[in-house]
Design a protein around this nucleic acid. Structure first.
Length: 420
RNA sequence: GUGGGCGUAGCUCAGUUGGCAGAGCGCCAGGUUGUGGUCCUGGAUGUCGGGGGUUCAAGUCCCCUCGCUCACCCCA
């Protein structure tokens, strides 16, 4: 083979690819029911949008972006996440000038230049939802519940919800300073020491045991929250509890993107190898201003489509994917004349609303019948010279092997009757 | 960017102290010239990831290289 998919990317092929469609639909259904409108933005944007929106200090921006210069000399970046684009679209089209919040959802590809491993690829898919322009704990709770409903609809039972708050521009700086002071006293490697100065919160997220051991006594955000943030977070927690959503408070939960404030959450699953997050999000009250817009306190999430599929696989929810009905009816023509007639018949069936396929490539009867079996079709239509002469076709039930002759003119109606 | 593991048929993988390139599944054909799934018989398909070296002889040993994969890092 001379070509293969670029490093860190992969193809969805049947029958698994069908599950991808189903997962996207299931994850999007709850937000659609909640009145979120669909938005589609370009797969690439002005590089500066991500640098300013996502944050220069993040790994995503500093080393994981697919950036290139286009023929017009513009710096372009394949989107590493969806939120910045959606907020940009809202600002560009003035959607925030109407009633707030603006509720939008999206589904599409994201790109990050990372070293691939299980559950982490350079090209991946997310379904996302954003509620833009309102500061209301009920909105945070709504989104969290909608995501949880999506996972539940897929039959997932092992998804856990982790919840935290990062404070706001009032209380975060004080916490940040306290954390930095603590971290500077630890024995850490050079990249981590640098991170203390740039984005100290993310040091809490380090998974290395030797680092975690030293973090035992680290100051936590919850102990430094201002009154407003404390009340806000408490309200989110109460709403979730009232709605029956189970969650775990995780004071160490930190997001990798700079724009997060207050509520942050992550949906985690144990079946993804060393990755754990199947979805995550939070409040981003300052993002709009960072990219030149007015103050638009907002909240949103992104759920990983391929990671969700891995989680389903880990729970054995993909087991029965081997067998599947591709079509309902399969045509088996014998000879050139019958092939032409069958082509018309199959077309007629499809226009009548049935799903139908036929044998191509001039196979013999045996090969064509094999094709019928593999298609998962309930019925095979066998058409040969004798049938053409009689203006009839053999209708075979592939589950019982029963075969009856029916007039060509009536096949469509008869089959429609059988499937209604 | 840093480590570990693995590269042999479409897929999953055997391949002994270096000695003719293999199996199962799948695919194709026949058994059955108008009937699939089961069964029987037969068939096709390989730069043994690539390059170099050692050797009478390399899938096997040595060096280099590329790819995949898992993990660190980071994140959905």
């Amino acid at each position: 083979m001379s070509f293969q998919a670029p490093k860190g990317t992969f193809d969805w092929i049947p029958p698994r690819s069908e599950r991808v469609l189903a997962v996207r639909e299931a994850l999007a259904a709850p937000v659609r029911r909640a009145g979120y409108g669909y938005v589609e933005t370009p797969v690439f944007e002005d590089t500066a949008l991500f640098v300013r929106g996502v944050g220069e200090s993040t790994d995503v921006v500093s080393k994981e972006m697919y950036t290139f210069t286009d023929k017009g000399g513009r710096s372009i970046t394949l989107r590493p996440e969806g939120t910045a684009s959606v907020v940009r679209a809202v600002l560009q089209h003035g959607l925030h000038n109407g009633q707030l919040p603006v509720k939008l959802w999206y589904s599409g590809s994201q790109f990050r230049y990372e070293r691939a491993q299980k559950g982490r690829y350079r090209h991946f898919w997310q379904v996302g939802a954003e509620a833009i322009g309102a500061e209301d704990p009920a909105l945070d709770a709504e989104l969290i519940l909608l995501a949880a409903d999506g996972y539940a609809a897929l039959g997932l039972t092992g998804v856990r919800l982790l919840l935290n708050t990062l404070g706001c521009k009032e209380c975060r700086p004080r916490y940040r300073a306290a954390l930095q002071e603590f971290l500077r006293g630890l024995d850490l490697d050079e990249p981590t020491r640098a991170r203390i100065e740039i984005n100290p919160l993310r040091v809490l997220d380090d998974k290395r045991p030797e680092v975690q051991a030293q973090l035992a006594g680290a100051p936590l955000v919850v102990d430094h929250l201002c009154e407003a943030c404390k009340a806000y977070h408490e309200e989110v927690r109460e709403l979730l509890t009232a709605a029956g959503a189970a969650f775990t408070d995780d004071p160490r939960l930190v997001r990798g993107l700079d724009y997060y404030t207050r509520t942050t959450f992550e949906f985690v699953h144990d079946g993804l190898g060393s990755q754990s997050a199947v979805g995550g999000g939070g409040r981003y009250d300052g993002l709009s201003e960072m990219i030149g817009g007015p103050a638009l306190p907002s909240v949103g999430w992104a759920l990983g489509v391929d990671r969700t599929l891995l989680a389903m696989e880990a729970e054995g929810l993909l087991a029965e994917e081997a067998i599947g009905e591709r079509v309902q009816v399969y045509g088996v023509p014998l000879g050139e004349e019958a092939r032409r007639r069958m082509f018309l018949l199959v077309t007629e069936l499809r226009r009548a609303g049935l799903t139908a396929d036929m044998s191509f490539g001039g196979k013999g009867l045996k090969g064509a019948m094999k094709g019928a079996g593999r298609s998962g079709a309930r019925y095979a239509l066998v058409l040969g010279e004798r049938d053409l002469a009689a203006q009839a076709v053999q209708l075979k039930d592939l589950t019982t092997a029963e075969q009856t002759e029916v007039p060509l003119a009536e096949v469509a109606d008869i089959l429609k009757g059988k499937f209604s």
